Simulated scan of single mutants.
Amino acid sequence: MTHPTKSRRVLVTGGASGLGAAFVAEFLKRGDRVLIGDLQPPVDPALVAGAEQVRLDVTSDEDWASALAWVEEEWGGLDVLVNNAGIAAGGRIDVIGIDEWQRVIDINLLGVVRGCRTFVPMMKQQGSGHIVNTASLAGLVHPPVMASYTAVKAGVVALSETLSYELGPYGINVSAVCPGFVRTPLASSLGGSDAVADKIAARLIARSPYTADQIATAVMAGIDKKMMVIVPDRAARIAVRTKRLMRPLYDRQQRAFGARVFAMTEGKA
């Protein structure tokens, strides 16, 4: 696949660290102009050197309006919107509170919705654009003890598919990115009321064989191909195929995981 030769105008939310920063670095390597939307300064300034930054809380309509104003004034348009900002979350249904559900919905789902609502009118006027929404393997495969996360990430996948069909006639592509566990600082956003679930999630993130750089490179290939759903790592692709083609095996795996959590939480491990 040939890389785009024209310098693109790109906004990456959550681009100051983790997978977002890896996305920023990949776009910069291609000669694109990149704007980071984040609440924090870059963790590794050298990695994203050359990118601009605006303060962006993805739950804030005012911050989105400011980001739009910056893009209009500085660039006059936007070619790629990467809705990447998010938090890790999870927990047993009877342990975590509605406030925790609301937080992950506000950031991981409505943050994406706000980004799309903000920049779709501009892209429609241009007659072009690409929206890339970071979902997760959890949007396609739904393990136990992760209800808030899987529900929200499945929502991001569904939103992306709907918008792909809705916005296609305007020349706008939409992709959902669905990686498995990646070694990033995402675990630092854990801190819910279900300590057992947080411990499991942190361990899975830490043990991932994939780095953010590896995932970002694979995602860029999917963006080049304008794929609607990008599953960038082999482990995630195997999990998706198992669910689709070997459902009894998939069910046994997830029930076994649920049984291990039950043993841990009920003191039988």
Rank of each mutant, 00 (worst) to 15 (best):
227 M>D: 11
180 G>K: 07
6 K>A: 07
98 I>S: 13
43 V>T: 12
47 L>Q: 12
149 Y>M: 10
190 L>Q: 14
249 L>Q: 14
136 S>Y: 11
188 S>V: 09
15 G>T: 14
103 R>H: 10
9 R>P: 09
266 E>F: 02
251 D>G: 00
156 V>L: 12
114 R>G: 15
205 I>G: 05
129 G>E: 03
27 F>D: 00
128 S>L: 06
222 G>R: 07
20 G>D: 09
207 R>Y: 00
4 P>T: 07
96 I>A: 09
146 M>S: 13
88 A>D: 06
118 T>K: 01
82 V>E: 09
14 G>N: 05
103 R>L: 05
39 L>C: 11
223 I>S: 04
138 A>Y: 10
8 R>Y: 03
194 D>L: 11
61 D>Q: 08
237 R>F: 06
149 Y>R: 12
27 F>I: 00
21 A>H: 07
257 F>G: 01
182 V>A: 00
222 G>M: 04
85 A>P: 14
239 A>T: 02
108 N>K: 03
221 A>F: 06
82 V>I: 15
211 T>K: 00
29 K>Q: 09
255 R>C: 02
106 D>S: 14
131 I>A: 00
38 D>M: 09
59 T>R: 15
172 I>G: 04
121 P>S: 09
137 L>D: 06
33 R>D: 06
87 I>L: 13
58 V>M: 11
25 A>L: 07
13 T>C: 15
